[in-house]
Structure formats: C-alpha cells, structure tokens
Design a protein around this nucleic acid. Structure first.
Lengths: 98, 98
DNA sequence: TTGGTATATCGGAAAAAGTCGATATATCTT
DNA sequence: AAGATATATCGACTTTTTCCGATATACCAA
C-alpha cells in the first residue's frame, strides 16, 4: 500500500467524485439494472463524469493501481467497484502514522 | 475544509514527511531546546528536508492553507505545528463521505 | 541606523498531470 | 469472417506542480 500514490489518486475532483458514486452504486447508477456485485461498468461512469472515454478509463486504472478500486471483466464490459479495505487502511494510516 | 486541497497537500513525499516529523517534534528536532508548544521553526524543518528555504517555506504555507498545520510568529522565527483537528476531520470525511 | 538572521514572495525552468482524439484490442452477434 | 460495441492504450497539447535562485520583508542587536 503506497500512501503517496493513494493521495495522488485522491487529488482530483473527478476521481473523488467517482469514488463517492461507487459508494452507493444503486443510487447513482439506476440505469444499470443488474446487480452491482461486480460494480459499475466504465461506460456508465464515463457518462456521468462528462469526460471522454479515454480519460475515464485512465482515471479508473489509476484508482485501481492505488488499490482503491478493483475491476472485473464480464464479456465486453469492465466493472469497477470500491475496495473498502483500502479505505479502512487509509484512515488507519492517517490516524496512526500520519 | 476543502478536501481536495487537503489531498493535494498530502500528494508530495516531502510534505508528508514534514507532517510526520511534526507529529513527534521532540524526537525529530532534538536540536531545538525550548518547548515545542508553538511548534518547530522553518529553518529546522528546512535542514531536515534538504530542500531550499524557499521551497520549504512554500510547502509549509501550502500545508497551512489546507488547514493541516498552523503557525505562530515569535520574534524572527515562525513556528509551525500540526492542527490535529484537521486530521481528525479528514479521517471522519474518508470514513463517512468518501 | 546599520547589519545580520529568519522567513516570505516572485519569476522561471523542468517535470508531471490533465485531457483529448485517434487507434488498438477484446468480445459479442450474426 | 465481419461488423458492432466496450474498453484500453498511444501521442500530443495544455495546465499544474515541483523546485530553484534572487529578492523583499520583518525583526533583532549593536
């Protein structure tokens, strides 16, 4: 767990927004009917941000590299969901070591 | 409290380091004899970082703008110390809203 | 008041991040 | 196999950040 990388990933309004949306996917992505076990697919996220597909794809892989989200490929879609352990670990880090 | 500004302030190795040093000033700045009530002065911090005076001064005011530290001017020295409330609020934000 | 010391601010060069459009890759459908 | 759709990657351009040296400001001491 690289904390610097995590803070860099969190240093962007759109990326923060994405993480907050992914906290309550049913609420923020109602157009996705099926279950949210695997998360939300890139296209849905992209639409909501208003950024281009390439930018959102890059942001998502950045968040993933930081460990904040994880992906599952199902067919032609890639679903992303939060890795709650990482958030837990982050608050722990701030409380104990920062 | 602007969370984005806080994360940006935390997105730098030297600034993170400074915050960690300021967590235990007696330990990391033994050369400063007097009490640490007001914090640690810029010069001491600068020496430890190895960065130039101007850079460190700028980093410190950045951390202050983010609310993570606060300053006290005593004579020709400016002392900086952590604002623990901000850290508390940050973990709260991550836990509850992020 | 004249230096000396500590810090802040300014201006700039180099590196990194933000963001896009174009293209590549993977998968599905027919 | 061929086209359609979803995502990833690449190359380029712009904006921001990093970090410096030079200079300004504030305070102290003689």
């Amino acid at each position: 767990m690289n904390n610097l990388e995590i803070f860099k990933a969190l240093s962007n309004k759109s990326r923060l927004q994405i993480l907050q949306w992914l906290k309550e996917p049913e609420l923020h992505f109602p157009e996705q009917e099926s279950g949210f076990e695997a998360g939300v697919c890139v296209g849905q996220i992209q639409q909501k941000t208003g950024l281009t597909q390439s930018t959102v794809s890059e942001y998502l892989s950045m968040l993933q590299r930081a460990g904040l989200i994880e992906s599952t490929r199902i067919g032609q879609w890639t679903y992303y969901k939060r890795n709650e352990n990482a958030f837990q670990a982050l608050t722990m880090f701030i409380k104990k070591e920062l």
